[in-house]
């Protein structure tokens, strides 16, 4: 068994003439929280989708949990939980029906399914909401249901694409508490975010800009290396180095 949960070599995705992901080399250690930072359109979601087998890379290779992303994508799927940027559960089903559905899709036995559902309901504090239609829940609750469904099959890797976008600060905090608890249990978490406070709690972060990897390391290491005081400043100085001052200003206003 390899030490890394994810390894990519020159991973590239082109949409027509647009290069969404450009020769990406990434290594995500097992059992750690790995944050990908970057502005909209930097290739974060595309990278995640390639790793999960939703879209096919144009060139390059990748291994997830030791499986080739081109050849063994079904094996990856059985061991990976994925939460997309857009809420993608069935709004016309209840919380429990959604969980039951995914339990069935991952071929859990009835006993297993019951056990997992109990555990996840406790973990995500969904108890009492089982019979509520997902459409009737607020954003923070929906996101916890999505997380519970993504974890139903006890995956070794959890891939979260901007899980807290548009969620209130309290729900965000609860969500991240759960993420850390999962990492403590040995689950590898790959997460994208816009929020620097979230990124600072990751074990490792990678800065993605225009489809390319700008820097990569633990938040503290990056701050020290770039001689700045916060992760946000680290990001801005990197982008500045890459494109010049003008972008820095527009970028600052975007991040705030």
């Amino acid at each position: 068994m390899r030490e890394s949960a994810i390894v990519t070599r020159d991973l590239t995705k082109k949409f027509g003439s647009l290069i969404a992901v450009n020769n990406l080399n990434l290594e995500v250690p097992r059992g750690k929280i790995f944050g990908i930072l970057g502005p909209n359109g930097c290739g974060k979601s595309t990278t995640m989708r390639m790793l999960c087998g939703v879209i096919r890379p144009t060139s390059g290779t990748g291994e997830v949990l030791g499986y080739d992303i081109m050849k063994d994508s079904e094996a990856i799927k059985q061991n990976t939980g994925y939460m997309s940027q857009k809420f993608s559960l069935y709004q016309d089903l209840t919380v429990e029906e959604n969980m039951q559905f995914y339990a069935g899709i991952y071929s859990l036995s009835n006993k297993e399914a019951r056990k997992r559902m109990e555990k996840l309901k406790e973990m995500t504090n969904l108890r009492g909401k089982e019979r509520a239609l997902v459409s009737s829940l607020s954003g923070g609750w929906k996101q916890r249901v999505a997380l519970a469904c993504a974890l139903i099959h006890n995956p070794k890797l959890l891939v979260l694409d901007e899980p807290t976008a548009g969620v209130d600060p309290v729900s965000r905090r609860i969500f991240w508490k759960i993420i850390h608890r999962l990492a403590d249990e040995g689950v590898t978490v790959l997460v994208t975010t816009h929020y620097m406070d979230e990124a600072e709690t990751c074990h490792n972060t990678a800065f993605l800009f225009s489809g390319r990897l700008l820097a990569y390391g633990s938040p503290n290491h990056l701050i020290k290396e770039l001689k700045v005081s916060t992760l946000e400043e680290a990001f801005l100085s990197l982008v500045q180095r890459e494109t010049g001052e003008e972008v820095e200003i527009s970028f600052k206003s975007f991040l705030n």
Partner: peptide, 13 residues
């Protein structure tokens, strides 16, 4: 259209 397909695609179905 509802976006639930993306979630289905990442499952072994």
């Amino acid at each position: 259209e509802r976006g639930t397909m993306e979630q289905l695609i990442v499952t072994p179905v």
